[in-house]
Computed example of a mutant assay.
Amino acid sequence: MDWNRVEGNWKQVKGKIKEQWGRLTDDDLDEIAGKREQLEGKIQERYGIEKDLVRRDIDDWYGRQRWN
């Protein structure tokens, strides 16, 4: 997976992230700034989901995105 695409377009991607993980705040997203490990950690913190499941959820989400 090429996470650089997410990092490079973070401002545009933040809305899609919030649609998927609505418990993340704007402050969380600003702090994450496109960094996958930080995104994983915040999802774990907000949802109480184990790390492996969070990684799979992010991979699934990424695969569903239409990257132009």
Rank of each mutant, 00 (worst) to 15 (best):
W3C: 04
L53P: 10
W67T: 09
E45R: 11
R46P: 00
E40P: 03
D59A: 12
K14C: 03
W61G: 01
R64F: 08
G48Y: 08
R36Q: 08
G22L: 04
K35D: 13
A33H: 06
R5G: 12
R56I: 10
D57M: 14
I58A: 06
Q44V: 02
G15T: 03
A33W: 00
G15M: 00
E7T: 13
G48E: 07
E45D: 14
W10Q: 04
W61Q: 00
K18W: 00
E7L: 12
I43L: 04
Q38C: 13
D27G: 13
L24Y: 01
T25K: 01
E31G: 15
K35S: 12
L24C: 03
R56P: 05
T25D: 07
L24V: 05
G48D: 02
V6I: 12
K16S: 14
I43M: 02
G41W: 09
K18G: 02
V6K: 01
K14G: 00
G15R: 06
V54W: 01
D28G: 03
R64H: 11
R23W: 07
G15D: 04
W67D: 11
R23C: 07
W3A: 05
Q38D: 13
Y62R: 09
D30V: 10
K35Q: 15
D2P: 08
I58Y: 03
D2G: 11
I43H: 03
